[in-house]
């Protein structure tokens, strides 16, 4: 089998699977039927609407495009707060919320995100109006180089949602999907605990 036919086959498998959003699948089918050029079919690009941080965004994706790629390189303007470090689900730098649940955006096909609200690190706050978790990361120095920080911020929001009263061991477990090379972990734990205390005292929690 030539390389091209292999790629094409792979695209069709993806299109036939349940993982793909209907708009992309329809578009694929339509372009095949219309006898689109081989290259077109191969690329299988189609428009997808996704809701990111409360805004509907239109983005051109292929069946293989991950949510991470859609955010960082396909969207205009791109959202680069979400980081790519491993691209294979080992590090958590790409963590976002999908339907309120934490997910590795590098392992999520963009096409599966139609109709599912996505929250990225940018969606939690801005430098002038940070979320309580973001503020606590600053206060407790839960960052050094900061490259892992967006992933940790999202993961911490999710952890405190899932297990608001988590003790330290449970917090470590909840945050075990994220890696930091600079070694900020103890400061990240302190930040999470500060948020817990603040929320328990009736702090806002955003």
């Amino acid at each position: 089998m030539s390389r091209r036919s292999f790629l094409r086959g792979a695209t069709q498998v993806a299109a036939a699977g349940s993982m793909i959003g209907s708009s992309a699948a329809d578009e694929m089918a339509a372009s095949e039927a219309a006898g689109a050029s081989e290259v077109e079919a191969l690329r299988g690009a189609s428009e997808l609407e996704i809701s990111v941080n409360g805004k509907l965004r239109t983005v051109e994706v292929e069946p293989r495009t991950t949510l991470l790629q859609a955010l960082r390189t396909h969207m205009e303007p791109p959202l680069t707060g979400t980081k790519e470090v491993c691209g294979m689900g080992s590090c958590g730098a790409c963590t976002v919320l999908i339907d309120g649940q934490p997910a590795y955006s590098c392992l999520t096909l963009a096409a599966t995100c139609a109709g599912r609200p996505i929250t990225t690190v940018e969606g939690f706050g801005s430098p002038d109006a940070m979320s309580d978790v973001q503020q606590a990361f600053c206060d407790k120095d839960g960052m050094m180089c900061g490259f892992c920080t967006p992933g940790f911020v999202v993961a911490t929001h999710a952890a405190l949602e899932r297990a608001p009263e988590a003790d330290l061991d449970e917090l470590k477990y909840q945050l075990s999907g994220n890696l930091c090379r600079c070694g900020t972990y103890p400061h990240v734990f302190e930040a999470a605990q500060a948020v817990q205390e603040d929320r328990a005292r009736g702090g806002e929690g955003r």
């Binding site: 960082r72 303007p77 791109p78 959202l79 680069t80 707060g81 979400t82 980081k83 790519e84 990225t120 690190v121 940018e122 939690f124 706050g125 801005s126 430098p127 002038d128 940070m130 973001q134 503020q135 990361f137 600053c138 206060d139 120095d141 839960g142 960052m143 900061g146 490259f147 920080t149 967006p150 911020v153």
Partner: peptide, 21 residues
């Protein structure tokens, strides 16, 4: 002293070389 670039890092606004477009 909380780091002065904490807020941009914690909110994903800090632009690294990877992020330059």
């Amino acid at each position: 002293i909380p780091r002065v670039d904490g807020p941009v890092k914690a909110t994903g606004q800090a632009v690294y070389t990877h992020d330059v477009r």
